[in-house]
Design a protein around this nucleic acid. Sequence first.
RNA 1: AGUCCCGUAGCUCAGCUGGUUAGAGCACUACACUGAUAAUGUAGGGGUCGGCGGUUCAAGUCCGCCCGGGACUACCA
Length: 1119
Amino acid sequence: MFCTFARLIKTESVMAKYKEYKGLNFQEIDKEILKFWKDKDVFNKSVDQRPHDNQFIFYEGPPSANGKPGIHHVFGRAIKDMVCRYQTMQGKRVERKGGWDTHGLPVELKVEKELGITKEDIGTKITVEEYNQQCRTTVLEFVDQWNDITEKMGYWVDLDNPYITFDNKYIESVWNILGNLYTKGLIYKGYTIQPYSPGAGTGLSSHELNLPGCYKDVKDTTMVAQFKLVRNDKSEFIYEGLGDEDVHFLAWTTTPWTLPSNTALAVGHKIDYVMVKTYNPYTKKKVNLILAENLLSQWFTDEQLAMDFDSFDPENDKLIPCKVTAKFKGKDFELLDYEQLMPYHQPKDGIAFKVILGDFVSTEDGTGIVHIAPSFGADDMAVAKKYGIGSLTLVDKQGKFIDGMGEFSNRYVKNYKDDPNWENIDVDISVHLKLANKAFNIKKHVHSYPHCWRTDKPILYYPLDSWFVKTTAMQDKLIAKNKTINWHPEHTGTGRFGKWLENLQDWNLSRSRFWGIPLPIWRTEDGKEEIFIDSVEKLSSEIEKSIKAGFMTDNPYSKGYDKIDLHKPYIDRVFLVSESGKKMTREADLIDVWFDSGSMPAAQLHYPFENQDKFKTHFPADFISEGVDQTRGWFFTLHAIATMAFDSVAYKNVISTGLVLDKKGEKMSKRKGNVVDPFMTIEKYGADPTRWYMIASSPPWENLKFDLSGIEETTRKFFITLYNTYSFFALYANLDNFDYSQAEVPLEERAEIDKWIISLLNTLKKEVKQDFNAYNLTPALRKIQSFVYDHLSNWYVRLNRRRFWKGDLSKDKLSAYQTMFEVLFTISKLMAPAAPFFGEWLYQNLNEVANKEEFESVHLSLYPEIKEAAIDSDLEQRMEYAQKISSLVLSLRKRQKLRVRQPLQKILLPILDEKFSNQVEKVKDLILHEVNVKEIEYVTDTAGIIKKRIKPNFKTLGRRMGKQMKEAAAVIGKFTQADIESLEKSGKYDLKLGDDNFELTLEDFIITAEDIPGWTVASDGNLTVALDISLTEDLKAEGLARELVNRIQNLRKSSDFDVVDRIKVKLESNDFVKEAVEKYGDYIKVETLADEIVLVDSLDSETIELNDNVSTKIDIERS
RNA sequence: AGUCCCGUAGCUCAGCUGGUUAGAGCACUACACUGAUAAUGUAGGGGUCGGCGGUUCAAGUCCGCCCGGGACUACCA
């Protein structure tokens, strides 16, 4: 089998043989090639053998190894690998440093699950030290599986020296980059309302909030609350004519739990409001309600408005009447006072319970009056600040109400603990207010609400202190730089990513967690002095100062990278001294993990502490590729950090890959049980068919509907065909001892068909290269596939079979071998980036014998040189004619029920121009042989027997004729054969349409041969052929001889004769057989390797039918 | 709610700057072939190119609206 690739040393006597196989076994090939790569260290050589001054820079996005790899990872990596291997073949040095993303919430949550603890337990039940140690272990839990799939799928990346984001050096680089931004004034601390996940115990960044699936439709209890207006001098105008009745503002909320924290109501400046007199539907008390006029119909029906108010009986009548009693403008209400709805606590940071004006108030839904809880909404906070309105933060960070709230104290506002006994607090608040005559309407309402991507719980908007990167300050530059990036597909760059940059918000860096890169900022207690630590060295020297000031006793960060730990809790034991001598404490937050991976271009090199020169040549990347879901993730953080810190893009080309769905187009999920296991898939089908299928079936950025039967088809249509082609070549090349040591037959001396396939091959090399360079991977693979299948296998090999199996190693045969070798050898290289195993297998099998190149591996070799001189478009065209004409003749044979083995006399081919007949003449022999016909007769129109068809050439005429085109087409459509003839003779035609005269030339028409009257024709596009089906005695005899050859061949095969065995044939004679043998005996002998043919009167074997009329008996034996 | 992408044969997909019988492969049916056989050839059925409207001499292709699918954005009461 496939034991070694050690180049066989040729001697005069021992001839190397191409390996022959019993079948195609991908498991075996994968295994052998992996071993070969490992033994010969091919990956490292593929990098090291390329020069440093010709780099192709690739960045590997770091996966998190705390989960198992999935089939979508194989997809993404197949693309990355293909591009990198291709660039290597272009002579580029493509270093590929692997990496692991190790910090962040997913890791922490997994650890908490494993240990059965919650965030609150950290620091009590378990120390931060132990906790972080556990994170460090867990995060690389599946690293073996990752390494395994990486190897098995043939993804080349350096996993021996990966960058790891928890590494001290990596952290130091991240600090340095952050310091770079800090120095530029791009880092600030702010107090804002942010999305916060009580379940995870942390604020969420906008990109975390933008992860797919975060916004979900939820059904919440919503209510319209009645806020009672305070009657005083300012509000007196509203009470006109009301006597001592109360007035309420109506405000709708989808989050009743924020009502205790209400400190204001917002109305729209220009919005029209009405006062409605009605009864509260729950308490049946008479009330006066204020709401937007436009929204009246939302809460009251026309019927209600039409009812007689005075005859209403609150006890018995179901339908409640109402009537509009007054109208106001929003601005009339400004700064009116209302009574606090749920007076548990009072705000300490401002005035409260005022009606204020807000631009954001609309009358699309609700009541046109917005309940404002500054602590729990960004808009609320902004408008409250403007009016000096205070806030009430009555929910703590665990997501439960604080003390002093009566029956609601210490209850969770959402079910964050998955408590089975949790009762919906929105409902309870609604009921509470209902009883107090403070609720006007309570109903369920479906709306979309953001959820935490990890805990799957609804988030809260919560006031938090946070550190931000002022990305908005660099927005213009970010947008400008993005325009220089070559996005694949383009619309992801202009659309999704571009739009994101246009609506950019500042990047919230803070995470109040444990396992991550600590924010290296120390502050004095009053916040007036702060220091940014951007290196370990600086940390150490500042500690020394602190020791002198007496805030620390020893320096734990002076011992070298491998003896320190920059994580919590150690870093929090560092206290520094300010310039004025005050103690400084570290800001408690960690840095968003996305900053980790976005810093990777510099941090993987420990820049700027090491590799200053290398960074210059390794930044920015030529190419990266990840899933579309990284648009706001890694693609953004790389771009933002590179732009802000280094004033450069981070990558020049990017492919954003689509999702891998199941075959029905549904997302893969454990719940549905439609997850495809990458290990099983590769094991069963082989890495190459899997990879090839994924890239060839649709462009990478489209979602892939992953269907195993697609891999099977790829295997059959491409790999097996190619394997069969190789097997065919190997079989005969070995018989003829072809090892490419013979002198090369010059191209011009080779057969037409050889020149043709070489021409196509060079066209293919050219097109594939163009496609690869443009990152059009899918078309490239499709072209290779179609070349192998349609042209190489189903045309070149099929037509050339007999060249290989007949006679000695003549010059013609030699050129056939050399041609086929060159084609296969080239294909092995073209396919190698996408199918690295099979490409290697093919390359080695060929090169091992022929020693054409010195490279140890196809992946060390260079992309095949494009020989422009070998490309002959005329030749390609006439071969296409040959293919089409053959196909037409075969279909005519089919229609006439004439099997191909029956020779026919001639094909008739109408000829309209000389070039065509010249072209066909050159491939005549191929056609005649393929369809088993003796000659081609060209039928020129001088005889006047061709019926022609004429069509206007819309492309040239359309522009000139414009509106008259239709009319012209009608005229031309009515041309007679005589009209066409005179047009062809004179070469021009005057077309009169009304008053207009158009001078048309031959170019304005398309004339085709449609028919040869009296013959059966077949046509395809512009080609038409007819077939002479009359049979002479001679042709019949030859046909019979061919049938005999066929039967004898079958017997040879069923008798297990070797293809080279010579035989003796006995035939039971009859008139037909006798004539066939007399006339074509030599032919039969040559074809069947028979030394003699004996005709006998009777034979003992089975009767074999030769055609409808003739049968015989045949006997063969080895001679 | 907005933005972007997609919608072509039962399935997977081509269809370039608008140009006149809308293609391929798979699957299906029939016949042929059997010295590549996990093949191959030929023929056949199968399409209102998501719908409607517009621009144009001409629309699968350009424009608008709508429907369906997906991704993303969103403080939205």
